[in-house]
Simulated assay, not measured.
Amino acid sequence: MDFPVNGYTIQRGSTLDRALLSKFMGITYEELFPGNPLTHLGHTVEQYFSSDTPLWWVFDASQTAIGCLWVGIAIDQSSGVRHAHIFLLYVHPEHRRRGIATAMMQCATAWAQARGDQQIGLQVFANNQPAVQLYQSLGYKIEAYSMLKQLEA
């Protein structure tokens, strides 16, 4: 599939891409939480990545992976309905604002619709306003708040 921006292609990944997926997760979280060692991300990939949780890569003209979309399956806690869930969406900063994330989300939507899903869910950090704005522009609505309280040791 070609993107609207010349020079980018999208390719479906496979379960052989575990190491690259772990790397992209690390890049994503390092960008959001600099200096915070996130050693658990490899375990997350090992535990949840399978042939049932599709992965797409975005490549630039030099065939370098510059973007990643990992989609999984979730159950809506209020209705019990199974639906697609975005685990990871990442585009390298130098390639942002070119329609790449929107095109990847279209891949996720097509995959979910082909499965018969009625909705797609995701979580986004509140301080990641560019991502919040992207998702809202694509029709995503806030449904819940995730709240945490730090406990004293």
Rank of each mutant, 00 (worst) to 15 (best):
R115N: 10
V91K: 03
Q119V: 14
I10P: 01
Y135Q: 04
G80L: 03
I75C: 13
F33Q: 08
F59Y: 15
Y48D: 12
D76Y: 06
E94H: 15
L69S: 01
N127D: 11
V91T: 13
F87S: 12
L89S: 09
Y8W: 14
R82P: 05
E94A: 15
E30M: 00
T102D: 11
I100G: 02
F24W: 06
L89V: 15
Q136E: 11
N128W: 04
Q123I: 03
L69V: 02
L20K: 00
R115W: 09
H40R: 09
G99T: 04
V124K: 04
N128E: 07
D76A: 10
A108G: 03
Q77C: 06
G139H: 06
P130H: 03
C68N: 13
I75A: 14
A61V: 08
A74Y: 06
Y29S: 02
L88Q: 10
L89M: 15
N127H: 13
I73L: 13
R12H: 08
T109R: 11
Y8I: 13
Q77S: 07
Y8R: 07
Q129M: 10
H85N: 13
L38D: 05
V58Y: 14
A19S: 02
S137T: 04
C107Q: 10
D60P: 07
P34E: 14
G7V: 05
R97E: 01
V45A: 09
P54R: 01
L138Y: 03
V58Q: 10
V58P: 06
Q118V: 15
C107R: 09
R97K: 12
V132Y: 00
G121W: 08
